[in-house]
Structure formats: C-alpha cells, structure tokens
Amino acid sequence: MDRITPRQALRMVVIAATALCFLMPLYWLTISALRPEADIFRFLNPFGPWTLIPNQLTADNIVGLWSGSFSRAIVNSIVVALVTVIAGLMVCASAAFALAVIEFPGRGVVFTTMIVSFLIPFDAIAVPLYSIMRGFNLQNSYAGLVLPGIGNGLAVFLLRQFFQGIPKELREAAMVDGMGWFRIFWSIYLPLSRPALVSAALIMFIFQWQAYLWPLLIAPSNDMKVAAVALAQFSSAYNVSFGLIFAGAAFLSLIPMLIFVFFQQYFTSSVAATGSKE
C-alpha cells in the first residue's frame, strides 16, 4: 500500500466517520467522568463547543469513586473475570482436546451435549440455576459468580474445531517418542493454538464482564456485588451522583478497551499471515 487513491481516501473517511459514531457515547462518557459534576449537564443542551470539549478537568469523580464502596465491586468484577478465564480455559481446552483428538466410544454423545448446552440461553435458565446454587449455599460467593462461566460450550466448540486442524502426524510422532496424552496436550496442542485460545478467552471474558442478570440474582450483597450491578444501582439510589456513575462507567469501559487494543496485535498478525500466503 504505497499510494492511496482518492477512492481509498474517501473510503477511509467513511470508515472513520462510522467508527466515530460508535465511539461517540464512549468519548462523551469519558469526558463527563473527567469534568466537575455540575458541568456534565450544564453544557448538554443546547449543543455548543463545551458539549464535547471539557472546559475544566477534575479528578474528583475518580477519587470519589475509589474511596466509596464501588472499588470493592470493581475488584470483585476483575477477580470473577480473571478466575473464569483461567479456569475456563483449562476446563474447555482439555474437553476440546479429548473431543478433537482422543478416539473413544461415546464421543458423539458428549459432543452433542456440549452443543445443546450452548443452545440453551443462559439468562433464560438463570432463575432455576439460582435455586440450585441456593441449595449449595453459594449465594454471595465468588464460586457462585464464577462457576456458570467455566463450562462454556461455545468455547469448547471453537477450540475443538481448531485442534482438529492440527496435523495428525505431529501427535503420532510424539506418541512414537513415548509422550503421553497429557504431554501431547500441554506441550504440542496448547502452544500451537494461541489464536484460538485468545478467542475462547475473549468469549469467556465478555460473558462475565457483560453479565448483569446472573450477578444481580446470585450476589446482591454489598460485599459481593460486581461493578455492573453496583453501577446500575447508583442511578436508582436516592442521591443520584452522576459524577460517580460516569467515572465508574468509564472505568468499566476502559478495561475491555485495553484488552481489545492489546489483542488487536493478534488480529493484525493473523491478517498479515494470510497476506503472506497469497
């Protein structure tokens, strides 16, 4: 791509404009978090230069956010997402490995079970699942928040597809060398599957970071509330503090933003890889 034609330039402008429409609410969220609370609504209507450019910056909202109970909720959210992704990757990758590589009787049945499990919408079974978890006394616990995110049928499916694409010869050679199934899984399949593992991790991260109904049901106590629930309750509370709401919302958007920007490298590298093949 040495020279950009006018047509391509026009396309770039359209792309940027479209993307900016998607970014607009987030941009506005961020500047609102950084301006004095009184300014958030003062310049909103009618539309003027200060609507989108903060005339005064402050860290008050962020400081206020972290000194209140919200900091605990953010820690909860991070712990839940992190534990889910780590445990979920181990559980789903090993299941996917068995389904893709090991031949055993009943494999079809197990695979079908996995597929059916992700066709059942999770939010739709949240209420009966809540009664099961209550039976095990798992309300207001990390286990109650994390467990439903670990056995992810979609992640198993995705990883299995990827594992199936790894040449059979590799594991046959490894078996001749006397490697067991576990070594083959750990030192051949996992290192070769980084892009698929990243995608599976993203699926599980989004599941937890997005979650609202389930944490609302299982962990309503002040200590165990996740950030998404805590934030929604800011606005229904008596003294609505929009400064805090915006600061909390900006923080909750910042974390996935950083993760996406970081993994963008993986996306571009895979695009580069397909480019070199042509």
Binding site: M12, A16, F205, Q210, A211, Y212, A249, S253, P256, M257
Partner: peptide, 21 residues
C-alpha cells in the same frame, strides 16, 4: 487501508462493556 484495524476495534468495543453501563 491504514487505521482500519483500529476503527474496527472501536466498532467492536461496545459489546465488551457491561450492558448496565
């Protein structure tokens, strides 16, 4: 084209933000 990867991420971003936010 240059920057497209970045703009693509911008369009994808809202899905990862908690729906309550």
């Amino acid at each position: 084209l240059p920057m497209t990867g970045f703009w693509r991420t911008a369009v994808l971003l809202p899905v990862a933000i908690p729906q309550s936010v």
